[in-house]
Design a protein around this nucleic acid. Structure first.
Length: 284
DNA sequence: ACTATATCCTGTATGC
DNA sequence: TGCATACAGGATATAG
């Protein structure tokens, strides 16, 4: 759901909405989203009081909101996390988990998360790069992203190519939706063995993932329902441009063959059975 | 060391 | 109508 383009839309919304603002009060309405803050919800709220946000940062699907003092608020949207900027007097939406009130008044920052796979925590000295994010690979939007290195690393893996795309330590930011779209563009089956993939094919695959995510960002991200929205509560339009994801039975935009949905890693994978043939040596 | 699987969580949709 | 089940899937702990 929120993958790189969606998280970037949120980051930009936060840049406009909270940079430079000082926190007056934090209220944790549900403890689960702050479970990674090991000192507990009360400490989380107390620690944040009086801090001033600077420009928000992102790597892959991780967000962090640095403070002027060098620490940071670390955030992951998980499956259904949202940041919303709402007037303090506006009704509290269902599944609102954490409220941030600022010294300058409106708007409030609200963290809403239905499934609570995401979460917030304070990362000491995390302004530059939180320790919790250090193991995550650079994403394709990162100026220091190294395509050659990513290709080399992918080809050393002994697994299927979709697993490799979803591995955030290899290339970050890609989730189930953009993995399927990239595989379709590169005409690869998800179970194609990474170690049998020619260098050029691997490069084309990662480049396709970057391209589809860039196009999605330009459309404001992908959304199927109200679970992914920007800080204003509205959703992007890229789902209109998806070739295969969520399109079981619809014709492949390239060859017209009906798209197939298959179980994969406890979730779904969508592919064109003609453009993306089962490889001789499939590897899941 | 590396790869694969189970787990967390809630709301919505579907089947009987 | 009501209850049970499937599904959405990101990241990580744990198992192999």
């Amino acid at each position: 759901m929120p993958e790189l383009p969606e998280v970037e839309v949120v980051r930009r919304g936060l840049a406009a909405g909270i940079a430079g603002r000082q926190i007056a009060r934090v209220e944790v309405l549900h403890p689960r989203p702050v479970r990674r803050h090991l000192l507990g919800a009360d400490d989380f709220a107390t620690q944040l009081q009086g801090r001033t946000f600077t420009e928000p940062c992102r790597r892959g699907k991780y967000l962090w909101l640095p403070f002027a003092d060098g620490d940071a608020l670390l955030a992951h949207l998980g499956m259904s996390g949202q940041f919303r900027l709402d007037a303090a007097e506006a009704a509290i939406a269902p599944n609102t988990r954490v409220l941030f009130t600022f010294g300058d008044g409106d708007p409030q920052l609200r963290f809403v998360d239905q499934r609570m796979f995401g979460g917030l925590s304070v990362s000491p000295d995390g302004a530059e790069l939180p320790a919790e994010v250090a193991h995550i690979g650079r994403d394709p939007f990162d100026p220091q992203f190294d395509l050659g290195a990513a290709v080399a690393k992918l080809r050393t893996k002994r697994t299927g190519v979709k697993r490799a795309l979803l591995d955030q330590q290899l290339v970050s930011g890609i989730g189930n939706i953009y993995a399927d779209e990239a595989l379709w563009r590169a005409r690869l089956h998800y179970a194609r063995a990474t170690d049998s993939l020619p260098r050029a094919a691997a490069a084309a695959l990662i480049t396709a993932a970057a391209a589809v995510m860039r196009e999605a960002l330009a459309e404001g991200g992908t959304s199927f329902d109200s679970l992914y929205v920007n800080v204003n509560g509205s959703s992007g339009y890229f789902n209109r441009s998806l070739a295969v994801y969520g399109r079981e039975g619809h014709p492949c935009p390239r060859c017209g063959t009906p798209i197939r949905r298959e179980a994969f890693m406890n979730r779904s994978s969508y592919r064109c059975p003609r453009c993306q043939r089962v490889p001789r040596h499939a590897r899941l």
